[in-house]
Design a protein around this nucleic acid. Structure first.
Lengths: 180, 180
DNA sequence: GCCAAAGTAAAACGTTCGTTGTACAGTTGC
DNA sequence: GCAACTGTACAACGAACGTTTTACTTTGGC
């Protein structure tokens, strides 16, 4: 019976996601992870440590599900993610919003910044492979569409992905030789 | 010296915005509002009541700054808002993420839903006035761009508005008679 | 001048928080 | 078989939470 750090973190992630960070007590977390208070503290050190670990795990888990080689496929990855995880808006954005009160402000901000940088560079790579060249403007626009889809999916539902797909293809086609 | 409910709510709004809802204690709020505990409770009833009141005030304040008659102008409104208020991602999204733990879940969800509906219908009206007809697809795409700009502005800065503007104009021009 | 209305300060309420301490059980490897 | 390790259960810590209470001050209209 492992009860490893990894298992604990994986169990706590959905709890933070659904109820927020500051609002979730250690009792709820130990119960969700099915471990004693002592064990959780041995492995994670503190609630702040657990929070950072959860965000790191989330980041790795998210990017490991992103196998896309085009932005349209990235939206399919997002669609699948939302089907499996639900849509409550970007967890990293929400974590950042509670960061300083979490007394883990520095650690949280670091992971959030890393997530955002990785997302940007992922989209940047997709743009290069689709357009055959770097295009920072297009990359920023697609980043906005991706983040917008993530946010709006919480109230538009699957329609958010459809609209994002449409907007993205429009942006990517811009500048193509006219076919009329 | 009024110390009215309105003043209290206005003073508490930036505190919630900067530090989160669950994480902000009543001491911090009374201090920010410069009122005694007793007065705050007399006017707002509870932390849950204050939370809902703050979100309602935020909604009215935000929409009253939106004087746009085109989506591009709406992005200018957003740009000005962000310059004045800072960019920490949509407060309503963050509030919803803490809603059930706030024990004001129902009230918060109601205001958040109302905000989102009003945003959608505002954009819908702009689309009608720009295209001369309803277009739900374009409206959804612009909503995504608006929400995406709101989110990404917290790390892209003013560049987020520029990219959103570019994406939006592309989406709005789509279908126009070709000029080549 | 006085009575309400509305404010203040400060202590106390019981609860819950994050965290630590104590005492004990199960497994593993040599 | 006996360390060493890793886990559990559970009580306890002080601090902070949201809220209420008590007692007092200020203010404005009639």
């Amino acid at each position: 019976m492992p009860t490893t750090r990894t298992d604990i973190v994986a169990s706590c992630e959905p709890v933070f996601d659904r109820h927020g960070f500051a609002a979730t007590g250690m009792d709820t977390l130990t119960e969700a992870a099915n471990v004693s208070t002592r064990t959780l503290y041995k492995h994670l050190g503190s609630k702040a440590g657990l929070t950072v670990a959860v965000l790191e795990a989330r980041m790795e888990r998210f990017f490991s599900t992103c196998t896309a080689s085009t932005f349209d496929e990235l939206l399919t990855d997002l669609e699948r993610w939302i089907e499996a995880e639900g849509a409550r808006g970007c967890l990293f954005l929400r974590a950042q919003g509670e960061a300083d009160a979490l007394s883990a402000g520095a650690g949280v901000s670091t992971v959030v910044a890393e997530y955002r940088q990785r997302l940007r560079s992922l989209i940047g790579r997709l743009v290069i492979s689709e357009l055959g060249r770097e295009d920072e403007t297009v990359s920023d626009e697609l980043l906005i569409i991706f983040e917008g889809a993530t946010s709006t999916a919480s109230y538009l539902g699957p329609q958010a992905i459809i609209a994002a797909r449409s907007a993205a293809s429009t942006v990517l086609m811009r500048g193509d030789p006219c076919t009329c």
